[in-house]
């Protein structure tokens, strides 16, 4: 039984998860440029951290991958297939692309279990979800996802009764329940304290390593980007200004990305600034 569910939650090999932007542009109706001539390729299973000051287009980039933001021109494709603009095709794509949010976005009045099952909505018939009548196999996937983030004992607790860190874990479990090829994490630790921040980042890295899910994380703390990223992408005014290995990124690079001196506001742990 537990072996079965283990296999359920582990995406099949050759799951894909490659993302490719080509000459992608996004201009918002108010004239703000969210993305400018972006050419970018992300390989399956990569762990990419996106940095940049606020308004640099980090969220815009993430939200373009699952079609929450539409490109003004250019293309974005996942595993060679262009992201559809609407309709059934977009729904099918979103089943494979999970998202984690800064403000968790859980249904606070409902149980943790129901919140995780939201990740399975694309996989069950409309009638079943309407009656809240979930097949045993779907529940097994949800429980397995909760086990992966270590809060399975909270399954029947109301989401509003959890701490911030636990709520974000439910958010991660909901993403995992989708059995996605790609996880998009939009500032996942921005509303958490430093200790919880490290736990959540560890969870994301572990899941990426164990399940091979392509993971893109938006962060605004530079030390976190250095510590957890494999590859760092820097954005400035919607433009790609840095793309390189997290091990070799220098303070000079960060100055370039931010267009100013890096201060202690840009790091989570003060000691790191002292070292640098």
């Amino acid at each position: 039984m537990s072996d079965d569910s283990q296999q359920n939650a582990t995406p099949a090999s050759g799951q894909g998860g490659a993302i490719r932007f080509e000459k992608a542009n996004i201009v918002y109706p108010n004239g703000v440029v969210g993305m400018k001539d972006l050419d970018l390729e992300i390989k399956p299973g990569e762990f990419v951290v996106i940095v940049g000051s606020s308004g640099a287009g980090k969220s815009t980039l993430l939200r373009a991958v699952n079609g929450l933001n539409q490109l003004t021109s250019g293309t974005i494709s996942i595993d060679g297939r262009e992201v559809p603009k609407s309709g059934k095709g977009l729904r099918e794509l979103r089943k494979r692309v999970a998202m984690i949010f800064q403000d968790f976005r859980l249904v606070k009045r409902l149980s943790v279990m129901t919140n995780v099952l939201v990740g399975r909505l694309g996989h069950v018939s409309g009638l079943r979800s309407m009656l809240n009548w979930w097949p045993q196999s779907e529940k097994a996937i949800a429980i397995d996802a909760l086990e992966r983030v270590g809060i399975v004992e909270k399954a029947w607790v109301r989401a509003s009764d959890l701490s911030g860190g636990q709520q974000q874990r439910v958010g991660i479990a909901r993403a995992l329940a989708q059995q996605p090829a790609i996880i998009l994490a939009d500032e996942p630790v921005a509303s958490l304290d430093p200790v919880t921040t490290h736990q959540i980042m560890d969870d994301l890295v572990r899941i990426n390593r164990d399940l091979g899910i392509t993971t893109i994380v938006n962060l605004h703390f530079l030390d976190l980007a250095r510590e957890y990223g494999q590859r760092i992408i820097g954005l400035r005014f919607g433009e790609l200004v840095y793309d390189g290995d997290a091990k070799t990124v220098t303070d000079e690079d960060f100055r370039n990305i931010y267009g100013r001196e890096v201060t202690e506001d840009d790091v989570l742990d003060d000691e790191v600034v002292a070292e640098g």
């Binding site: 929450l68 979103r94 692309v97 949010f101 976005r105 939201v118």
Partner: peptide, 13 residues
């Protein structure tokens, strides 16, 4: 409206 967006982005109808 953040929550409806989350459900939509998980592939919900």
């Amino acid at each position: 409206m953040g929550l409806p967006e989350a459900v939509r982005s998980a592939g919900g109808s």
